[in-house]
Design a protein around this nucleic acid. Sequence first.
RNA 1: GCCGAUGUAGCUCAAAGGUAGAGCAAUUGAUUUGUAAUCAAUAGGUUGGGGGUUCAAUUCCCUUCAUCGGCUCCA
Length: 633
Amino acid sequence: MITITLPDGSNKQYDQPVSAYEVAKGISPRLAEASICAELDGKLVDLDRIIDHDAALVLHTFSSEKGKEIYWHSTAHLMAQAVKQLWPDVKVTIGPAIEQGFYYDFDRDTPFTEEELKQIEQRMQDLSSQALPYSRTELSKANAMKLFGEMGESYKLEILNEIPDGEIISSYRQGDFIDLCRGPHIQHTGKIKAIKLLKSSGAYWRGDEKNKMLKRIYGISFPTNKELNEYLAFLEEAAKRDHRKLGKDLDLFSISDEVGPGLVLWHPNGAMIRHQIEAYWKDEHLRRGYKLVYSPHVGRSNLWQTSGHLGFYKENMYSAMDVEGQDYYIKPMNCPFHISIYNANLHSYRELPIRLAELGTVYRYERSGVLHGLMRVRGFTQDDAHIICTHEQMDSEVEKLIVFSLDMLKHFGFKDFLIYLSTQPEGSVGEKEDWDKATESLAASLTKLGLEYSVDQGGGAFYGPKIDIKIKDAIGRAWQCTTIQFDFNLPERFDMTYIGADNTAHRPYMIHRAVLGSVERFFATLLEYHGGNLPLWLAPVQVMLIPITDAQLDYAREVEEKLNAAGFRCELDARSEKMGYKIREAEMKKIPYMCIIGKNEAAEGKVTLRQHTVGDLGSMSLEAAMEALRQHS
RNA sequence: GCCGAUGUAGCUCAAAGGUAGAGCAAUUGAUUUGUAAUCAAUAGGUUGGGGGUUCAAUUCCCUUCAUCGGCUCCA
């Protein structure tokens, strides 16, 4: 008797071994049809896997993350099959599922053209209609080497070589196509109904630029055309939210060819938003015991020598400029300056923690291919701070930092974060004891605050462990904003000390952190998150005054003055255009509120309020309108 | 930096081996209007830069710069 436990706790009993598919069918034929793979005692397996012992079984459909992953992975195999059929000489490499879809890397000299993508897509559809079963074969490493060797798939041999001897190796075959693969897979190619190959690009073998450049094809697939169309519509929607488009449409910023790539020009509207962000940022820091500082944009080579940047960061720094025979470098980081500020005085343990904060503009050489709107630029302003504290203060400082960061991000409207804890990498500096203590402190704070996080083992900087908080952009790409990093390197290099209660010098702990990350990147994620409809307190123009005819201009000016005096940012549209036209323009500029002022309003001393995307809110006294605005924020 | 695509008026886009066209925006004039586009006129371009082929290039070729999508890296 075999007992199978389902996720809801119920049991199914069988006299003899049974496949996961049969179990699914026993529950409901529809579930069996929708199932993609099975999870047996926590291990993903094919649906036709025979269950011969008591086990916990979870069936995954396309609605689960794991189901999607297997589905897309299977589609990647299908694409590889199509490509091999069309171009037998092309070598296959690897083709995993990604967050949205899948890709497959091929070794081929010429890139895949749009035409060819369509051709591949068509062939995939043909193969799908043949409903070819994916069948698993387990074989020894030697046999696998022989098989893929005969097929001439050299990349597969390279992968096989790295698999330890004795391990069972599986391959999957559908029709005439065999791929080395751990699996599992969907039952047959017929399950893949809607396919779209999105783009082709180059990608290095194993992500290493020293390796050969392969040709990658990205695609996505769904069980129904409806889902595919919805996804394509989502991409279109997302494109409208792209901060580069919004930046242009709302006249927020530009990047000029003549000024230089990756260098941002902030237009008045964008600058106003930035000003609001920065003002709030400064207030919050002062409230929380930070001291604001300013530092220069360049520093002598000695400084960067001491900090070590000329050693380990030089490829990201701009070349030196000569000043009276001395080399000066434009700063890629603020740390050495903040440390120099700390070191300008002798410090007692009574002063600690010292928290130095600055909106510090830095310049880094980023390779031309990586620049991306405001997300990745060459000159940017970090909302930087360095916290210098004693060992005892470390835990509470870390905890405060996490709370501070999340509070601030939430204030801007963000709700979903991805939190990562990165631990000690190979070749790091500092004592293991310090690393462990700091890492524990970071982990403990996250746990104490009840936050979920992923651990990036060995992903820390060489100088210390860190916590990163990422925010997603319009199409789900995650961008790092907050970073909280311990630094065991610079305090040593700059010989930072404080005098302890024992009247001897001690080495302080230093935490380097940025909450927003960089003003540029944060601004971009903020724009995309809100789709350009910023919260009232950030909107560059909060109220647009729209007189209906020129006869109301005087009254409108009066209203403007009063609104300004009350601290609202408003503009008067005094053009002799029709009201509908002015409303349309204000709506397109995403201005949160409009005050419509016609002869009725002028006569009664009122305004008619209209809210962006909402519509007419009716006529009211100016005081009532201002109260409504205050309520809004 | 590498692979691919793209680059035409301020913006969004057409066209084409024989010296570029629309809509919006702009300017001027008329209009004075009640909740998402009033009408007319005017002006606007070395078709990203450089070089080549050609009787002729903006179109074809080379090169360079930039942008976009990836690779890698990172705030």
